[in-house]
Amino acid sequence: MPALPVEQVDGLIATGASARMPDTVPPRFRPGDRVTVRNINPLSHTRLPRYARGKAGTVEADRGVFCFNDTNAHGLGHKPQHVYGVRFAARDLWGEQAAVRDALYLDLFEDYLEPHGG
């Protein structure tokens, strides 16, 4: 592998490497949809925190199509898919101890989600 040359440092830092991918896959969910987070427990890498598994939330935003971290961590390809900004009521995650108005937001890959009650 070649070493990063000093001439490329400024460009690298200013450009980075977006995980966003061409928007060629249709979205399964739309803002406003109620969704349930799948209860998965892979031994491999995932960006789905345990505290959200099995919980219900509402899609607030379609963030676009991104490379899927869970496969890309293991040489299993990009598996491009939509990522959704999902809002959870704090009480749906933590119970009565949470303040009634508070909320938590996660960015969730389509593979993590299923339709609520579906």
Binding site: S18, F66, A103, Y105, F109
Partner: peptide, 9 residues
């Protein structure tokens, strides 16, 4: 209070 857990990219 809205907490944003930046779990993706």
């Amino acid at each position: 209070v809205r907490v944003w857990d930046s779990n993706a990219e």
